[in-house]
Amino acid sequence: MSQTAVKVGRLEKSLQTNKVLRGISFEANAGEIFGLLGPNGAGKTTTLRVICTLLAPDSGSVEVLGYDTRTAPQEVRRRVGVVTAEFGVYPRLSARENIAYFAELSGVMDGELDRKVDAVIERLDMASFAKQRAESLSSGQKQKVAIARAIVHDPPVLMFDEPTSNLDVLASREIRAFMVESKGRGKCVIFSTHVLHDAERLCDRVTIIHQGRVVASGSTAEVRGKYQDLEDSFLALVEAAK
């Protein structure tokens, strides 16, 4: 049986006066792509931000590889890599310098810094633009920098929050391929998206969130159920939840 990498239990969270999460629970395992699905505003990004310790839960619990996000936030951050649709980079640093900066802050030691940075540059096929300043890179190249800096410390948990929403078809395909490859390396990949077609192709298991609550959870086939595809199933679940 796969190891549980991320465990979320009865998670509740309000942002100012808006109650965003109302008791979310799920588990994501190592060696799988776990889909966190839902329409815009469902609470997907807030859930991921709580998991990676950027936000503190109001109630409930979140554990990453056994570390509680409240009591051991730094241990959690060491084990998590996050890629979002907003792939901001430091424009006056080169692609390589951007990656090395995050590697150092993530605790990669001096002795292995160059080796790890070079390895990730090679893995993501970035050698041709690694020395260019980030301000001159294309959107796809910047997204690769954002991925590289998230994985350079080789975290066991990878979270992708709408990673393809600002990318063209080719760059999106590379991101999807990368997620599959990471799964093959035994990583726990959490994929948050509202593009159900992508989720259906990639995810082993999914949880659908609507208005801060889980409306369905299980393997992709189980959640699809009697419907032709995940989208029909999703629409039926959301309609039933109203």
Partner: peptide
């Protein structure tokens, strides 16, 4: 966000 995500 990426900066605050580091363990530093």
């Amino acid at each position: 966000e990426s900066l605050l995500l580091t363990p530093a």
